[in-house]
């Protein structure tokens, strides 16, 4: 007995089914944002007496008021100039002796910061300022550090900090033991050491 051949399945509705699925996925999913400004909060300070003393000249004061206006070192400033002003302050290198800064290219103004390790950028926000403005200010301040790090990295290793960091982050899990990776990690550490990101946010004031 010859078996009858199985009838061919009609695949004409395949496209319809696929379209249905496609539309479902289009509607239900959103591409998740997976980038952001990374920051680190200071650990909780239980002992308010034990606040490290910092010299006035080593602090770069940035105030944001409720109308989204900037006051930098007691002078109103446009946000476009913030990054450059911060970089100038950090890179000043006005210190002498062991506080000096051999790699700084700033003005060496004795009334500004001693060296990048001591320089602190302090950001104070009014509670009514908008997040929009806050993130822009933070972004500009981080940019100041990135510019300086890029410059230092280019001088030392001939590659910008950002591209080195991108390479570091893109390394596959399997390659994390190779000497190149460890060397890259060490280099990044050196640059970060030169220009540590001392971005401080004031303790919120108690209402009173």
């Amino acid at each position: 007995m010859a078996r009858r051949a199985a009838p061919e399945v009609n695949a004409g509705s395949m496209a319809d089914i696929a379209f249905l699925l496609l539309i479902f996925f289009l509607v239900t999913t959103t591409i998740e944002v997976d980038s952001g400004i990374v920051s680190k909060l200071p650990p909780k300070n239980d002992d308010p007496e034990n606040v490290p003393q910092v010299k006035e000249k080593n602090i770069f004061q940035v105030l944001v008021n409720k109308d989204n206006q900037l006051l930098v070192e007691e002078e109103p400033m446009d946000i476009k100039d913030l990054s450059a002003a911060a970089a100038k302050f950090i890179d000043n290198g006005g210190g002498e002796g062991k506080n000096g800064c051999a790699y700084c290219e700033g003005d060496r103004n004795p009334d500004s910061s001693d060296n990048p390790k001591k320089a602190i950028v302090s950001l104070v926000n009014d509670r009514q300022a908008t997040y929009n403005y806050y993130i822009t200010v933070t972004n500009e301040l981080v940019k100041a550090y990135t510019t300086l790090r890029n410059r230092a990295a280019k001088q030392r290793y001939g590659e910008s900090y950002e591209s080195m960091y991108a390479r570091f982050k893109d390394t596959q899990e399997a390659d994390k033991e190779t000497p190149e990776y460890l060397e890259l990690e060490k280099k990044l550490e050196v640059i970060r050491e030169l220009y540590p990101r001392n971005l401080s946010e004031a303790e919120p004031q108690q209402a009173g």
Binding site: V33, S35, G36, I37, V38, S39, K40
Partner: peptide, 8 residues
């Protein structure tokens, strides 16, 4: 303490 301000 590790935070990130997620932004586009």
């Amino acid at each position: 303490l590790k935070i990130t301000y997620t932004s586009n």
